[in-house]
Amino acid sequence: MVLATALYRGSHLVAGVVNVSQHQRDRPIQWLLLGTAIASTALVCTAARRRGRVTRRAVGLDALVVGCLLPFGAYAWGGAREPETIAWTMLLGGSASALAAVAFGVRGTAIAVALLVSTHLVGYLLVHADAAVTATHLNALVFSAVVARVLAWYLCRQGARLDAANHRALTAEAQRARYAERITHYSALHDTVLATLTAIARGGVDANTAVMRQRCAREAAYLRRLVEHTDGETPDSDIRAALEESVRAAEALGLRVTARYHEPPAVPGDIALIVAQAATEALNNVRCHAGTDHAYLTATGDAGRLVVTVVDRGRGFDAGDLTGGLGLDRSVHTRMRAIGGLASVDAAPGEGVRVELRWPS
């Protein structure tokens, strides 16, 4: 509507420039009045561009100055005594009426149009315009507001319908994501917990062996994470699923991982994959170098950023030296930089290691 009304006003200004340059070029006051109309239009458009909509104050000032006072200025000081010489100032009233219909409510629009019709009627009576010309112009004033009002209403209604359709689509996509995640968990439960319980129930394995106890501990940790992630949470499926794969891979190699997911933001699938790969390397570093069998992984959101931390309470190392087979520089920092993220390492001998992954940086 901002663009439509600006183009409508532009057509009227072009007509004004043509009229003044052809018939009243020797009257400086006419050029001054035309400049006033251009300045008022620029004010309305600048305010609309700044706020994303036409503003009532700017439109009200435009309706008063351009729509109501300009014709009387042309008559009183510009020497416009005939309908042809005052017509270009009257023409601007149509776009002022349309602007008012977009900016104001029904009551405000009715008041603005009534004021414009009254002043323009007086203006045409002053120059003794033909009744048919006057009636045609007043009709254009009224229907400029009606057309603008109807068009604004239609666009708002279509926008509301589009918003509703987008909401339904997003809701359906969220439901599909939750369903896909549930199926993934069901498959994982079938291949892990259910398989372990079935083997124990059939007596095929000794539940008291160290290997079986470790396996049961890993699967209990997985069940705990699954229970903590309720269906009511917003699906952050890509990053959560990718990190869960990293955790399960580390657990399969004998590392105990306590994982917590505190509403991490949704991220694109390729970003989730790279972050999970960096987290996998951090977990591998714990398993191979930390001197402990327990790590802590946390995924959360911080001001719209994804933040993943991997912490251990192992032997630690000098944070100034990331060489010697730790793999953090190549596998973690490089991966995160490639996707516009950031990896930081906080470590000290005897105090463990904290690796933080942020996306975006």
Rank of each mutant, 00 (worst) to 15 (best):
W88M: 08
A299W: 00
Q22R: 14
G105F: 09
E245K: 15
C156L: 13
D62L: 01
A100Y: 00
M1N: 04
R168P: 11
E173P: 02
S21A: 15
L69H: 03
T109I: 06
G291N: 01
L326N: 13
W88S: 06
D130I: 05
I339H: 09
A241L: 13
A87Q: 02
D329C: 07
R215D: 05
T5M: 14
A98S: 11
L13F: 04
L155C: 07
D236R: 11
Y124A: 09
L92R: 10
H289M: 03
A347D: 00
L125Y: 07
V44T: 05
V211N: 08
S237H: 13
W359V: 03
T184E: 15
A177P: 04
R305C: 11
R9V: 14
S40T: 09
S95R: 08
H128C: 11
G203A: 11
H167N: 13
G350F: 12
L141P: 01
V106Y: 02
A165W: 08
V106F: 09
A96L: 00
A207T: 06
A338G: 11
R51K: 10
T55F: 01
D206Q: 04
L125Q: 11
A74N: 13
G327S: 07
C68F: 06
H262K: 10
V267Y: 06
Q22P: 02
F317I: 02
A201F: 00
L297C: 00
E351I: 12
